[in-house]
Amino acid sequence: MLNDLKHHLREDKMSHILCPGCGHGTIMNALVHSIDELDLDKDKTVIVSGIGCSSRIPGYLNFNTLHTTHGRALAFATGIKLANPELKVIVITGDGDASAIGGNHLIHACRRNIDITTIIFNNNIYGMTSGQFSPMTPVGSYATTAPYGNIDRGFDLCNLAIGAGATYVARGTAYHVSMLTKLITEAVSSKGFSVVEAVSHCPTYYGRRNQLKDAVTMLEWQKDHAMPAKAFEKLPEEKTKGKFPIGVLHDKPAPEYCEEYQKIIDAQKEDN
């Protein structure tokens, strides 16, 4: 099986930059399995990223790949998709990239509902710059720029995406890898703007400072704190305290941007 997937990778560009125990490789693995299952045409698939650890992943994938500036991947991707809607466009981004510096682009890509899938590798920290807190770092956690504990309130990126108008929103984890694969497959298949928040882990820069001593401990944390979305919705608040829902959180189609633009072209074209 593994050998069958190798053609999706640029093996000559490895070894990769990810640290031992990093959750990002597992999420990349889920993405590659999804792409394989969907049998995407390599020539017609574009993978776009911003800046950060997760954003280096497109370099290892054998597609049209674009490593852009910090936070801006969705804006580049929007240009590509609108310019050529035949292309399947997937964005890989991290929690800092997507929610801080790129927050505005995320909101408006959701609102526009352009047919792009965004996978947010959320490891709750800026890993590439060695461990500063991000908008996804929990209150009370430690980071190099929160040496006395983080007082910045975080927010729920999936709720943000739903509120801003994304038509498919899901959350998975690096622990629940087969579920994550399924969620990515659904997201890429769904027409419109889809967001998958993939909860990852950074043992090097987050775990080490926050009593999560290794990758196994961090994966166990994901296992213990994730709860299927359906159960999460039904249970009273005291039973869901400290937990987070995983699975499909929102799936509601809406008019897709490129198709709406095509209608304008069809109506306005001079040779009509």
Binding site: L66, R72, F76, G79, K81, N84
Partner: peptide, 10 residues
């Protein structure tokens, strides 16, 4: 960014 994206798409 989108201008660059449009150019990359040809």
């Amino acid at each position: 960014a989108a201008t660059i994206g449009g150019s990359l798409a040809g």
